[in-house]
Design a protein around this nucleic acid. Structure first.
Lengths: 161, 161
DNA sequence: CTGAATTAGTTGAAGGAACAACTAAACGCC
DNA sequence: GGCGTTTAGTTGTTCCTTCAACTAATTCAG
């Protein structure tokens, strides 16, 4: 079967998307590291915990919500624990499992980091788009995620009515 | 000044975009590594060289087009050179500079990798969208890149008429 | 000209991510 | 109810990225 190459419009959209995907992490990381001493991934871990009931999640669930492998998360959480923003404890229900819980210090850390982060997002993304484009982007992302993340693991937290 | 938080639509768009940015690199890397033994970044390096006149670019220019730091590119190109897909030579015009050139083997490698990659892009991105959405995404990406990449370094190659 | 500052690139060391191997608990089923 | 399988998580190794230090060539100022 012959390859179906991308036409001009498709190629433009694709190249643009790739460039955004390439550049955005650096922009997010740089601001968070500079102002809060957190990587974007660490910020996301803390954010997921802060939204969870009891500020607590099992490692596996947290890994799914942050798109991390379990080894990666394990290392990151260990480092976060050393810094006192997260605590780990064996899960009473299932003794194989570990619960990660955001500490008071961790809550303070993410609450301190959030305004600057949101500001950064606004400056680099939201404010660059018209309201219509924001709405279009919402739909486009949803369509893409249907394939990239069929179970909606990464976005589940924000999809409450 | 108080933080201006994101409203519902903005938050949806933002969370979706972050999820896409988080997931897409893994999808691209996985296919390319599996089928061609290249990371997406390596693929992009070879692609930029293949589009350049004489299949040759100076390290600095290549770094800009791929959004790499110079040290990163230097390491990657060294490894690619060890694999015989790229050659380095001192630039005659400016003896500080180094030219990287895609070898015949490198050209063969990227030509072999391209169909599977394009296929993957189509499956995961283009085919998930309507034609209108592809066009909207094109515009949205362009608007974002105006801030993320004001000089258009990453997309310059594909913007010839 | 000549010396200071800038630019191009490499190299080495340190930190983080992916992968593989491992431990331990729970499930499943006959 | 014991044995194989699956699930949860950690640990260690390897590879890649980032950062800092360095060399060498070029530019620019006086």
């Amino acid at each position: 079967m012959d390859t179906q190459w991308l036409d001009k419009d498709e190629l433009g959209a694709w190249v643009g998307l790739v460039a955004v995907v390439e550049l955005l992490p650096g922009v997010l990381d740089a601001q968070l590291r500079r102002d809060s001493g957190l990587t974007h991934f660490e910020y996301y871990v803390l954010a997921m915990l802060s939204e969870a009931p009891e500020r607590t999640l099992r490692m596996t669930e947290l890994a799914q919500q942050t798109n991390a492998t379990l080894p990666r998360l394990s290392h990151v959480v260990r480092r976060l624990e050393e810094r006192g923003v997260v605590e780990r404890s064996p899960c009473p229900d299932d003794r194989r499992a570990t619960n990660a819980r955001l500490t008071g210090k961790g809550l303070a850390a993410i609450e301190a980091a959030a305004p600057g982060h949101v500001d950064n997002v606004r400056r680099h993304v939201i404010d660059a788009l018209t309201r219509d484009q924001v709405s279009q982007l919402h739909d486009i992302a949803a369509a893409l995620l249907e394939r990239l993340d069929p179970n909606g693991l990464l976005t589940a937290v924000y999809e409450r009515p």
